[in-house]
Design a protein around this nucleic acid. Sequence first.
DNA 1: CTGAAAGCGCTAACAT
DNA 2: ATGTTAGCGCTTTCAG
Lengths: 336, 336
Amino acid sequence: MAVSLRDVAEAAGVSIATASRALGGKGPASAEAIRAVREAADRLGYQVNALGKALREGSDGVVGIVVPMVSNPFYASLVHEFEDQLSNLGLKLLIADSHGELDRETERLEALASRRVRGIFAVPAYFDRSSPVITKIARRLPLVQVDRRVEDDSALSYVGVDNADGVDQALRHVRDRGATTVVFVGADDRTSVGRERERAFAAGVERLGLVAQRPIIDRYLFEFGLSAAAQLLRRSALPDAVIAGDDLIATGLLAGFARHGRSVPGDVMVTGFDGTILSDICNPTLTTVRQPMAKIAEVAIAQLTRQIEDAEDTGSHVRLHTTLRPGGSTERTPLT
Amino acid sequence: MAVSLRDVAEAAGVSIATASRALGGKGPASAEAIRAVREAADRLGYQVNALGKALREGSDGVVGIVVPMVSNPFYASLVHEFEDQLSNLGLKLLIADSHGELDRETERLEALASRRVRGIFAVPAYFDRSSPVITKIARRLPLVQVDRRVEDDSALSYVGVDNADGVDQALRHVRDRGATTVVFVGADDRTSVGRERERAFAAGVERLGLVAQRPIIDRYLFEFGLSAAAQLLRRSALPDAVIAGDDLIATGLLAGFARHGRSVPGDVMVTGFDGTILSDICNPTLTTVRQPMAKIAEVAIAQLTRQIEDAEDTGSHVRLHTTLRPGGSTERTPLT
DNA sequence: CTGAAAGCGCTAACAT
DNA sequence: ATGTTAGCGCTTTCAG
């Protein structure tokens, strides 16, 4: 089998304790011992067994993240950011995909917890139904909610964006470009994000004096955007602008309208949410509400670190700002 | 701290061994003991410490995957597939991002190996320079190369697609639509995939009697496709078709041409590679060479499983077939 | 500075 | 069927 510390110690002619100190650089060790042990370790191709080390130390340098769907470019980028920044701290990332389902989410969270990861970043599948698991796990170990949160989470940490303001930015943007009738095409209204965006839309419409058509709500999928476009075209009149719940839906709308020969932004304007690469790729490019993904990861990691260091740390909620990035999908002469 | 098996055993009034058997369902245990132990475990909120279990058993149910960049939709989807299928086998996925850099790749592979993961899926950063580390790790534990491979890897397992045939499918497709001059815009020619596609292009051009312009090679990035389009436009004449190294580059080309007022497929046809969601999102939709991602994951997992079960298992190479998926980017009347 | 020994939590012989 | 015991590989008192 693999070579263990014992083998190295034997080969170096020292005790296993000395070998450990020599390699770990923690306790005292003579230069001579260090040299001999290092030499033996090299020669034998020794590598610490992280499991043994972790068992002894209570936990290893692994943190987990549970996202609803890695293949959604937004979460892919987010995971990328986390992996990146965590690696600079010497931490590894265990990733789990909940598919936005409670069962899978529960199972994954339990698995991570039982592995004694140092902490967990979670994007809850549901606003209400995920609450018990998330709360339960958070009692056992450091946990930071990212992007989405659960209800009754005043004791939990959370990092996300100001969705209400984000939707408002989109609404004002299309309003300034002449829109009077608008519609919201969003998703997952049983998630905090879905609810927040949908409500912000309703409130914003009211405040800005716009007219809202009946919203269409389903899932964060390109295919949904596609079918939503068809649905909108079946209605008596197209709105001036469609505010989509995320970039995936927005690009689906774009493709759907194109497929039916409608022009964006000519016949209808479209805005997205997230600021993923998708917004650059589509044609016209997508006006979207950009989330500061690197910053989200940074703040979330800082929060988790604080919780790890101070078990008493009480959860804090952080809302970061979004920025509207104008693209071709709303390119009209602004009103003055 | 957390409640351990010992606590449960005590509470249930049995020995720790009985408790283990009662919970694990492995050895013999009386119905009465099982009931008592379960009850105690529930009451105390016991959860196995996966670390202790893993140390004892030599490894835990974790496998690792190292990809060059999770935020590339192709790898995001691949990771998604792996996570999905592995979870059905009760395995967890530890993910690492090499950024396509040798240093990071080496570090991540070592870390995974030292954690005694059951096995590793790796997309090597380089065809040549990654060879030593991949080979070394593969000697220590089950490893399957995915998508890309290293040189001198006859002893290593590999699962990927027939890139040569894939590029050929694209070439024949544009040839059938009237293309005579073509150009390859690819990337990472120090990876197996980059080389294979580039060579297949050169060979295919020859065989089909087409005329190739000087290729442009850089990285698998949208931004590169964008600048490559500009570069092509600066040349004396635009080719009839551009064969891109992947979807990211292809969509960059599409955006680049659009930005300069050129029509695709009118002025120039474009094909991609991978079959990611990007090909649906762009406008026109992208004709692309689809990789069977689910199948790739399936075969790779089967190979890893075989290696885990049989340490002597000698590496096998599997090349899966690609399928050309026609999109708007090459929509012309086929010649007859 | 070094070695002996304990123990992290768990499972698997082995003995009863 | 159950309990005792021996480690998995490592770090860390505690003596010396």
